[in-house]
Amino acid sequence: MSILALDTALDACSVALLTAGGDVLARATRDIGRGHAEVLMAVAGEVFEAAGTTPRDLSRIVVTIGPGSFTGIRVGLAAARAIGLAADIPVVGVTTLEAIADDALAQALDPDLVTPVLIAPVLVAIDARRGEVYAGLYEAAPAGLAMPTERTAPAAMSHAQAAALAIAAGARVVGSGAMLVAAAADGRIAADTAIRFPDIVRVGRIGAARAPSARPPAPVYLRAADAKPQEGFRIARTTAPDADPVPPSPTDPEVRP
């Protein structure tokens, strides 16, 4: 039995197969930026072939659920949920932020020299455009745990807000939005943009260690859909129109004026 990990949420299209214990059977990453929907199944096919296994042998799917490109998130999630349904196996979500944090924290960690508590936390910041980043603050996993500790839930925030969060926590900033956050902090924090997308093996390992119910395969967009009521011209009536727009409720997608 093996675990299939998928990531199409950011620039990369990545697939890995792991044993239930987290050992790598095969992996592939293509840094393509766009076109994930066309490429994903070919990459998956290569990985199954390299691992000498088939989708019938799967015991679990792990998939990145965002934040990232809305379309990219859905490409991976739709595929993962369909594979899970068709193979009758659980699907587990992993956020891009925690997977990138896991990578960044591991790079700072030499287990022979330091214990996790001595590692500075990281703020993962993904460029979300419109003056914002998708960000979350993470600490190294306590000994024996497979995933970093999430100190703040993933959120969309301004560069300045992210900078304040990093400074207060003494965190370094990593991810595609790291320089934007560092600029907002006038260079008072260390920033590293080298990690632009999750390491697919780390995605798989976090998912392998997680109870499926802990992170269901539901998208994490962090931003409402762009939508505004169509105001189209309407002629005045002597009686009430049938379709007065319903005022938006707080749970509804953002409505822009």
């Binding site: 929907a37 994903l40 199944m41 998956a44 096919g45 989708p55 019938r56 379309t71 859905r74 490409v75 739709a78 595929a79 993962a80 949920r81 369909a82 594979i83 349904l85 068709a86 193979a87």
Partner: peptide, 14 residues
């Protein structure tokens, strides 16, 4: 894309 990727996933498994 959602429908097409779902179909691809089912096709892959079976």
């Amino acid at each position: 894309l959602v429908g097409l990727m779902s179909a691809k996933g089912i096709a892959l498994v079976h």
